[in-house]
Amino acid sequence: MTEELITVLVVEDEVIIRMDISSALEAAGFRVLEAGNADEAITILHQSPDIQVLFTDIDMPGSMDGLKLAAAVRDRWPPIKIIITSGHRHMTDASLPVQGRFFRKPYQPVHIIKTVRELVLD
């Protein structure tokens, strides 16, 4: 564990998709925390002050979707950088309701890895 290990919170309800991106991010050298919905993500955010990047799907069951989660993170943990993905919604970086980056599903893990680095080292 080094000081500069980047911590990413991955929020995705599809287990296989979540494992895939999480293991890709780990293989790239990041520390990864996983949540299956927005409520779990909020709990983890409270417990882990070292999270630097949120990577969340929009379309999830539960009280909050990924966009609401992103808005909550912007308001309550403003230093955290935000990456959003969806297979159903057609959005762009500019049309996101929060400052962040958008990727349509299916995305390539290498693009997410590159973006995490860009956002944190920016």
Binding site: I17, M19, D20, A24, K105, P106
Partner: peptide
């Protein structure tokens, strides 16, 4: 999407 992830 699942099959792609399983493959990777």
């Amino acid at each position: 999407a699942s099959v792609t992830s399983i493959f990777r």
